[in-house]
Computed example of a mutant assay.
Amino acid sequence: MKNFFIISSLLDNDFYKFTMQNAIIKLFPLVKAKYEFINRGKYFFPKNFSKILEENLNNMAYLKLSNDEKKYLEKYCPYLDKSYIDFLDKYQFNPKEVKIFQKGTSIKMNIEGLWYRTILWEVPLMAIISELYYKLTGTKPFSDKKIQILTKEKIKKYKKLKVKIGEYGTRRRYSFNVHKLVLNLLVEEAKPIFVGSSNIYLSKFFSIKPIGTQGHEWIMFHAAKYGFNLADQIAMENWLNIYNDKLGIALSDTYTSKIFFKNFNEKLSNIYLGIRHDSGDPISFIKETIKHYKKFKINPNKKKIIFSDNLNPYKVQYISKFCKNKIIPIFGIGTNFTNDVGLPSMKIVIKMTKIFLRKKWISVVKLSNSKEKSTGEKKMIFIAKKMLSLL
């Protein structure tokens, strides 16, 4: 396992981390943040896991944007302006921002620093932990040939359904090699329906456009700064301040879709191209979304819903059938593409926990439409629900 380094490029990460980083640099450059690793699956980590993880982190300090990568961003990501790409050209990871502790088989990990810097750690760290865990515990996945067969079968099903699909699988992939293998098949065989990958490095490798917009932490920060009731609205308005009508997909479930729709006013509903569904019952959400658009006399058939909640061919078929002639569905498929290798996928997350504002650390929470996806301190979750009248 000596010198087994998983991340070999600054861009082996999800696109939405960079779009948020750009916005943070421009609007909130002095804000500090804390993140925490959450072992939802209660996994037992092998001896010396933290040591090999730290070696991987230390190696990431040497990653720099190459000239080819810079040219790729300029060509394929025009909404990232020159000043930001110049910033990224000088950016380097600082492993001192990450603290890892191992006691027996238990791992704890905390990230702390300026938000615009620490935001890039989450996805590559998750990918490293996942791949290292599988390798160090001696798991035996399906052969590459079987993974290819499974992926081709899924592509065939999605083509038959005539649905648009994207690949969102960086953070919980089995390995970089499996990720690359699957994406190669999507690029070669799913062209009519494939809209792109969230991974920038692999998108560059296959000369395709990366996809993604924003994550929950963008809205969680706004709740800490502006209050829970207005967080969704101000977060959406600030996004427009940076990107205008580009990257216009609104995230709907940071404080439940009920609160989101209260904030998604007529102006925002018209400007944003659509909404992302990431938790809760998809059919109820579709009905709620259509009702919301019709309230403002907006034609739902011209709006999109990006579905990204633990999808597989069965769920996609079920959802797309209900959406037909009602609203445009697009499916962001993650683990089912990059970690369908005959082993259980890891239930791990890294979440923002605190923001340094007004000279103190403020806890942040995500409520979600599914209780099991809520994160944050219990006391703060209770306060958020009380303030939002969700108790």
Rank of each mutant, 00 (worst) to 15 (best):
N184C: 07
N184M: 09
N184Y: 05
L185R: 00
L185Q: 04
V187M: 06
V187C: 11
V187I: 14
V187R: 01
E188R: 09
E188N: 11
A190M: 07
K191G: 06
P192L: 03
I193G: 03
I193L: 07
I193C: 06
V195Y: 10
V195M: 10
V195A: 06
V195T: 10
V195E: 11
S197Y: 00
N199T: 14
N199L: 11
N199D: 15
I200R: 01
I200Q: 01
Y201A: 11
L202G: 01
L202F: 10
L202E: 10
L202W: 00
S203Q: 02
S203I: 10
S203A: 15
K204W: 04
K204H: 08
F206H: 07
F206V: 07
I208H: 05
P210V: 07
P210F: 01
P210H: 04
P210W: 03
I211F: 05
I211L: 05
G212F: 03
G212C: 10
G212D: 03
Q214E: 13
Q214K: 14
Q214Y: 09
G215S: 13
G215Y: 01
H216F: 14
E217V: 06
W218S: 05
W218A: 05
M220C: 10
F221P: 03
F221D: 00
H222Y: 09
K225R: 14
K225L: 13
Y226W: 03
Y226Q: 04
G227R: 04
F228I: 10
L230R: 08
L230K: 12
A231E: 05
A231Y: 01
D232Y: 15
Q233S: 15
I234V: 15
I234G: 05
I234H: 10
A235C: 13
A235P: 11
M236C: 09
M236P: 00
M236K: 02
E237F: 09
E237T: 12
E237S: 12
N238I: 04
N238L: 06
N238T: 07
W239D: 01
W239H: 07
W239S: 02
N241S: 14
I242A: 02
Y243S: 04
N244A: 13
N244V: 09
D245K: 15
K246M: 10
G248T: 01
G248P: 06
G248V: 07
I249T: 08
I249C: 04
A250H: 02
L251D: 00
L251F: 10
S252E: 12
S252A: 15
D253I: 09
D253E: 15
D253R: 01
D253Q: 11
D253C: 07
